[in-house]
Every structure is written in C-alpha cells, then in structure tokens.
Amino acid sequence: MRTKKSFSAKKKGILIAAACVLALAVGSGIYFGVTKGGITLAPAVRSYVININNAEEVAGFVDYVFVGRVEKQMDARYEDVFERESEDGEKTLVGAPYTLYEVTVLENLKGNLKVNEPIRIEKEGGISMDGKFLSVAEGDSLPEEGSLFVFAVSAGADGSLLANHNYKLMKTKLTEKAIGKMQPEQLQKAMQAELEEAEAQADYKRFAEACKNEVPFARERYTASAEWLEAATQ
C-alpha cells in the first residue's frame, strides 16, 4: 500500500533525476570541446581596440552597417597555413579560416551598398583544414544561410568586404521554394513585410540608433566595390 511518505520520496527522486539530467545537458554544452555533428567548437580569443559590446563603437569602427539576408555560404580559404605536429607525432595543416557568403543587402544603416542585389562578404571563421573544428571568435557566431542579420563590415584595399560582426535578427520566410510560388507583386509585399519584421528586432533598433551616434575611430578606410556608385557621388 502506498503511503504519503513513499509518494513524496518518489517525487523527490524524480526531481533529483531530472535535475541531474538537466545539469548533464547544460554541462556538456558550455565547454570548449563541445562536439556537434562530429565538429568541435574551437573559440579564438581576441584583444580589441574598441569595446565590441558597445554598438556606437562598433558602428564607428566599421565602414558599413546594413540589414542583409544570407543567401549562400560558399567556400572557406585559409591564411598563414603551417604544419602543426602534436605530441604523439601526428601532423596537421592549420590555418585561419575565412568563409565567403553571398548576402542580399536589404537596408543600409551606414554607407551605401547596393540594395536588393547579392554581394559577397567574408568572415574570419569556419571549418578547420582537417574538418574537425569550427573556428570562431569567442562570443561570436558565423552568418547562417536563410537568416537575416545586421552586418557590421569593413572594406579592404581591394574593395572586398570583411564582416567584423553579425547579429542575427530572424530566419527568412522567403526561401527559394516560397519565392517560386509568388507573383512579382506578392513578392514585393512579402519582402517589405519581412524587412518590417527585421526592423522590429532589438539588434536592428540598437544599431539604427548607434549609427546616428557612432563613436568615430580614426583609421585608413577604403570603399567597397559593392558600393552604390550613384549614391556615393551625390
């Protein structure tokens, strides 16, 4: 016969077990060495000249801030490749990965990049040469296909664009399949609605405001080849 005492002991046991499972799940997710799909996170740590948590300072450092939709993640390239030998003699090629993305600019918050046309931007980070690690700056993340972001990017001397930071706003509903089913007028309305939804997100508002009050940073600057030439000459 079940007594009141045995019933509450059972409840306690279930609660403790649930807490243990939760702790295990949390504990396994917060450590370098976290492996997902066979790829281990390898977070790089950096020393910055600006406070990267201050949107005004980020906006002042970069050349362009815009809302963009990531259409495609392309190839990665590797800088400063060298051969690293582990203690057990295993040799691996190591280099800093840079991943290329095709992004459609939806709205400029700073600068004048071509809108509604795909441009290419590069971000430091990506899969390691041996395919085993995901290299990304600590606290940072890589752009994702099919999502909208606020991008803070800088132009290189060759006109290319490097993404310093990206802040995820939302996933796009305008997939290739969805677009394929729309009439042009429908698509226009859907694009407008999506942009309005993006503009309601906290990071959008934060950077829209930050770009008006940016903290200037004096450095050599270049123009992106993706800049909207007509606007640039006005």
């Binding site: 390898a42 910055y48 800088e79």
Partner: peptide, 17 residues
C-alpha cells in the same frame, strides 16, 4: 596578418596559433 577592417590587435586560437 594585415586586416585593416578588423578591430582586434591580436587573437589566439586553440588550434595552435
């Protein structure tokens, strides 16, 4: 490296560089 557009002075990676 020479990354004019990056706001970091130095970075250390667990991959060994």
């Amino acid at each position: 490296v020479s990354e004019l557009g990056e706001s970091w002075l130095g970075e250390t990676s667990p991959l060994g560089y």
